[in-house]
Structure formats: C-alpha cells, structure tokens
Design a protein around this nucleic acid. Structure first.
Length: 653
RNA sequence: GCCUGGGUAGCUCAGCUGGUAGAGCAGCGCAUUCGUAAUGCGCAGGUCAAGGGUUCGAAUCCCUUCCCAGGCUCCA
C-alpha cells in the first residue's frame, strides 16, 4: 500500500496511507484536534474533512474556534436553518445562506406569500435542534449543470444561480456541487461543511428581516432570518452579552433615560430636539471646541441656512449632490431656494467678499453650521444619521505651498481635540477619487491624493485605503476612532479641494502681485455635533466625564432640617462654576440616592447633622463602591474644579 | 425609496380567537424626616399614532397616511 506525505503548517511532515482524508490526518495528530476539526485547508483552499489528501499536500486542519472554522460552523448552521424552514413550510423556496461578519443569514420565499414572525424563530430553532440531534451527514455531491438544474427544478433561486454558473463557465464545462443532509434536503453549495449536523448546536437565531433577491429592489422581496453560531456555549454567550451591552449603551435609549434629546414625530424623521440637559452637554462641547479653534487661529463666521439655487449650481452640489438635498422652495418670482446641505459655498463667498492677499493665508473660517440633508427615510438612525445636523465646519483657504504643513498641523489638532473628549484609539482612512462622479483633472486629483497620503503616513497611525470614497470635489482623510467596546466610528474628515475655488474663481494676490488660485481644505472634527455626542454617549455608556455632565453634583440632605446647609454647599460649588443642584428631603435618602445614580450624576453629596457642624459632606462618587464621609467642602470644591479642568471623570480615581 | 415587524398613560409594557382599557415606574396631593440604589396611602392621567371602512359593537379585522425599529448581494 502506498503512502502520502503531508506537510503541516509548523513545517513538519506526516506520512499517511494513501487515500487518507483530512479527518484521518487530524486523528493521526491528536484526538483533541480530531474532535475540534471542522474543515481543512488543503494547498490553500478550504475543503471538507472527508477530502482525500493528495501526496505532498500542504494541509492545515481548521478548528471550530478559528475565524475560518466559525465560518464553516455558521454556513453549516445556515443549511440546517434552511432544512428546518422547508420542513415547517413545505414548498418554501430557499435562496442564499451565506456567512456574514458575526453570523449568517438565509433568505427564503415562503408559499402563499407567508412571512416569518418572531414567534416563528422559536419554532424554527426547535426544528433545527431536532435536525442537529438526528446527526445528519453533510455529503458532498458533484453534478453537471444539467443535473443540477434537474435536482433543483423546484428551487427557482438555485436554478438561477446554476444558470449564472453556466453563463460564466460554459454550459457543459463546469460542475456544481451540492451538500445533502438527507433524502429530503439538499442544498446547492460550494462548501465546505462540517461532517455532520451533530457538530453544530451553539447557535441563536436573532431576527427576521426582509431583503431583496440579490439586493435588487426590482426583484422579489425575500424573507431573511439572521442568526449566529459559535464553537462553544461560552463563546456564544459572550457574543450575546456584547450585543446586550451595545443595546444598553444605545444613545437613543440613553438620550431618553437621561432626558437629553428626543425625536418628536411631529418634526419628521431624522430631526431631533435637544432638551435642557442635552443642551448643556452640547453647549459645553461647542464652547470647548470654539476655544480650541480660537487658539488654533480660526476666525468665526455665520451664514444662513438657505440660498438661491445659483450658489449650488456654481458649487456643483446641484449636479453632484442633488439627491442628498431637500427639494427647493419656489418663491413667487420663480426663484428657487435650497436648504444648505454643506457650508462650503457660503464660506467661499466670505473669502471672495473682497480681494485677498497672500499675507492673509491661511485663512481659517469656522462655523457651527446647521445643514440639512435628505437622507432616505430608511437610513435615518438616532443622532448618528439625521436630516438636520450641525457641523463643526471650517474651511481653510491657503496657498499650494502651505497646504502640506497646514494639513499636518490640522491632523495633529484633530487628534488632540478628540483625545480631550476621551477618544484615543485611532486609525486613518484615505478616500480617493470616486469613479465617474468627480470634477477636476487627473493631475489635480493625484496631487491632492498624494498630499493627503503623505500627511496621513506621517501621522504614524494605521492607514486604510477607501478606493473611490472621496467627495465629488476632492479626496479626504477620515479619522476613525475605536470606542470603549471596540466598535469603530468615522469621526473627523479632512478634505482637500482644488475644485471649488476654481468654480467660484476664488483667488488671492501673491507676493509677486499675481493672482493665484487658492486651495481649500474642508474639515469637520466632530463631524456633526449630534453624531459626536451620540458616539460619546455610547463610548461612556452614558457616564459622561464630569466636565460634560449636565449635572455634576447633587446635594441631598439627610433630613429636611439640613436643606439650608445643602443649598449652601450647592451654592459653593456653583460659585466655582460647577453645575450642582439640591433636592428636597421628602423622600427617603436611599430613594434619592438611587435616582441620582440612575441619572448618572458624577457626585452625589449627602449632608447631615455631622456635616452641617463641620463644613463637610459625604461624597458618593460615581463608580465608587463606598461613600466617603466627612470630606471638607473646601477640598471637595477643589477636587471637582480640578477634575473639570483636566476633563476627567469620577471613575478615573 | 422598498420589505418585514411595530405604534396602547410621560416611560416600560399587559390586554386570548371583536363585547368598549390595565400594571409598574414617573407625575400630583397628603403623611413620613430618613446617613448613601426603591417609605406609605391616595389622586389624576389614554379620540388605544391619524383618518377611513367592515360590524349591533373595533385597541383587536380591512384600507390609506404618519412615525419607530431591523434589514435591503463581505455573491451557491
């Protein structure tokens, strides 16, 4: 009997009898590996464990607890889902069931236009567990195109996929593969799959949704079920806990609970109002931003919310961005006015209001500019995707030789400012020319792109390329930040623009008395104030650092007789610029403390007989397990003032 | 925009296959005066998103509109 030599990832080799499978290899290496194996990578491509290994193959055994292994588990679980649905809804057509980032989905078309409800998830889940208990094999079958069409004759989506394969590879040339679980269920699939359904089980169906066949809104709408699967109950639980944590941190929930903002339905989708407490947070954010911008050499401007159409004709917005704009208001004289979707054209007009000298450059015009964008109604989401928002927007007008340095300085400024808000983990994304949707010459674009890339590389952060993701007038660097639970958010954007100045004929007089075309840098650091606030809320799970908290301290008197002293303490804090309140003692202390905790107040201060006599307070710090007693009011005021000044949080101590 | 699922008191939600609305929290009043995450009693609060239809009768069934949530090819 001949043998085959298999090379393993660690460089070692194994000799096995000819005809051995990947499963045999795993077993030869160890019982534990044999148990954990779900698939194999043979000469670079993923395949089933049942695959017979060719001689001198390079083989890696794929275990469940790896990214590739989890994909196999999820894909196989998707097949089980499809089988369960066909059992429960005879006649159901199954379309595609791929794995996605944290799970999988499967799309179906149910007989008689039926659709899934949340209750169905339980039934399907139960049926899936039965299939898993049946220990059905995943058996690979190869079929010709014609056989495939016959096999899936009653599955129109599968037939369409096979037709696609036939179209690409030629009618007779290629074969299709399918995986059979039972006489009753077979699914067209590339694989690989686990050897048997018994290898599955740590899964959860998460939600039902509608989705178009092939994502095309002109094609049939299918019923989609999302789910996820993991290698162990513990890994699944951890994933579900993460989802619950994200839900707990959802800024829409926190905005409600903390009375920060709301979305009155009377206003329409994507339009928020800020309540007094949310208003404080916003105001503090904006004031700090203004202060930093002033220090960084920005000038402050104000511009209106609407303008005649001509402005946006000139800027190119009506040509390139019209679908993102609200429809025009028609005036009696036939004049069309638009709500502004961006501030840049207005700032250009300020630049152009008189002749500019090279001595004025860089000219940095800053505005908290409210803009309105007609987002499709299905995509608005809390404060992160709205139709009305305020950008911390500035346009820097500079010369060509200044732009590199200005951009480098700007990037440093951005990261520094974001750091002050508690974001420290960044990477950059460079978005380049959008194909077929851009103005300007190739030379200008490549100069702009290479300048941005140089600056981005110099920042010593990871740089990701976003091909074709730029605006119509120029490429951009966007700053992506990772939050406390590891999610990334696009925050700041910096765009380099040679086009707008040309469109507006914006120029300056150089030292040599010649007119030069000015360069524009568009930049928003928060992006939008609303969205940035939402990100901060989720980042901090509502426990904003003290300087941003609407209410920094609440003074509670143990009994009504100390309310005068409580007011005195609050007054002392307010005299130092801190936001402190008191609450009457007509409820038990525990109840008032609880409410203050739910309000996420950084410092709950309790005063009683001992304190009134000694000018002290009891300090219940957010994040602390035990309250401190007998802290002198003087010390407390200093502590809080210091914490605010360094933009800290009570949890830092 | 499209699809699915939703919209019941300020909030979170109950209300079976149609018989005409409930709880907890919040609010208000009274009592309680309490040392660090829920004091008691009482009161008030809803055109059941809006409009139309079916029906003797609609929160419940049907239609339209508005709003919310999730989703809408990381290709078998």
């Amino acid at each position: 009997m001949s043998e085959v030599v298999i090379r393993l990832p660690d460089g070692s080799s194994r000799t096995l009898p000819a005809g051995s499978t990947a499963q045999d290899l795993a077993a030869a290496i160890g019982a534990r590996l044999a148990r954990d194996a779900v698939a194999a990578q043979v000469n670079g491509s993923l395949t089933d464990l049942a695959t017979v290994l060719p001689d001198s193959a390079e083989v890696r055994v794929v275990t469940a607890a790896s990214d590739a292994g989890r994909d196999v588990l999820r894909h196989s679980t998707a097949h089980v889902l499809a089988q369960a649905v066909t059992r429960l809804w005879p006649g159901a057509k199954y379309a595609i069931g791929p794995t996605i980032e944290h799970g999988f989905y499967y799309d179906f078309s149910l007989p008689n236009g039926a659709h899934f409800s949340d209750d169905d998830l339980e039934r399907i889940d139960a049926e899936m567990r039965r299939i898993i208990a049946e220990d059905q094999p995943f058996t690979r079958e190869e079929h010709s195109i014609a056989e495939g069409r016959a096999l899936f004759a009653d599955q129109p989506f599968k037939v369409e996929i096979i037709d696609g394969v036939a179209g690409e590879a030629g009618e007779g040339a290629s074969a299709v593969s399918a995986y059979r679980n039972s006489a009753a269920f077979v699914d067209l699939c590339r694989g690989p799959h686990v050897p048997s359904t018994s290898r599955l089980g740590h899964f959860r169906l998460t939600r039902v949704a509608g989705a178009y066949w092939r994502g095309d809104e002109h094609r049939p709408q299918l019923q989609r079920i999302y789910g996820t699967a993991f290698e162990s109950a513990a890994a699944l639980d951890e994933h579900l806990a993460q989802l619950a944590e994200a839900e707990r941190r959802d800024h829409r929930r926190l905005g409600q609970e903390l009375d920060l903002f709301s979305f009155p339905s009377e206003l329409g989708p994507g339009l928020a109002v800020f309540h007094p407490r949310g208003g404080i947070v916003r105001r503090v954010m904006e004031e700090y931003s203004r202060q930093r911008h002033e220090e960084a050499g920005y000038s402050f401007v104000y511009t209106p919310h609407i303008s005649k159409a001509d402005l946006f004709e000139t800027s190119g917005h009506l040509q390139w961005f019209a679908e993102g704009m609200y429809p025009p208001m028609e005036l009696d004289e036939g004049q069309r006015y638009y709500l502004k979707p961006m501030n840049c054209p207005f700032h250009v007009l300020i630049f152009k209001s008189r002749q500019r000298s090279y001595r004025e450059l860089p000219l940095r015009l800053f505005e908290f500019g409210s803009v309105y964008r007609y987002e499709k109604s299905g995509v608005v989401h809390g404060l992160t995707r709205v139709r009305g928002m305020t950008q911390d927007d500035a346009h820097i007008f500079c010369s060509r030789d200044q732009m590199g340095e200005e951009l480098a300085k700007l990037l440093k400024f951005v990261l520094d400012l974001l750091g002050d808000f508690g974001l420290h983990d960044f990477y950059l994304e460079l978005s380049t020319r959008p194909a077929g949707k851009a103005v300007g010459s190739d030379e200008e674009w490549s100069e702009a792109e290479s300048t941005l890339e140089r600056v981005a590389r110099a920042a010593a952060l990871d740089l990701v390329l976003d091909e074709g993701g730029g605006a119509f007038y120029g490429p951009k660097i966007s700053v992506q930040a990772r939050d406390a639970i590891g999610r990334t958010h696009q925050i700041s954007t910096i765009q380099l623009d040679f086009q707008t100045p040309q469109r507006f004929d914006a120029s300056y007089v150089g030292a040599d008395n010649r007119r030069e075309r000015v360069i524009m840098i568009h930049r928003a650091l928060f992006g939008s104030v609303e969205r940035f606030l939402a990100i901060l809320l989720e980042h901090y799970a509502g426990n904003l650092p003290t300087w941003l908290c609407p209410e920094q301290a609440r003074v509670l008197s143990v009994r009504g007789e100390f309310e005068g002293y409580a007011n005195e303490v609050a007054q002392r804090l307010r005299a130092r610029g801190l936001r402190a309140s008191t609450e009457p003692a007509d409820e038990p202390l525990g109840s008032r403390v609880r409410r203050a905790k739910l309000d996420k107040i950084p410092y709950i201060l309790v005063v009683g007989a001992e304190d009134a006599g000694n000018q002290t307070v009891g300090v219940n710090r957010r994040g602390a397990t035990d309250p401190e007693r007998g802290v002198s009011v003087d010390d407390l005021v200093e502590r809080l003032a210091t914490e605010v000044a360094r933009r800290g949080a009570p949890e830092d101590l």
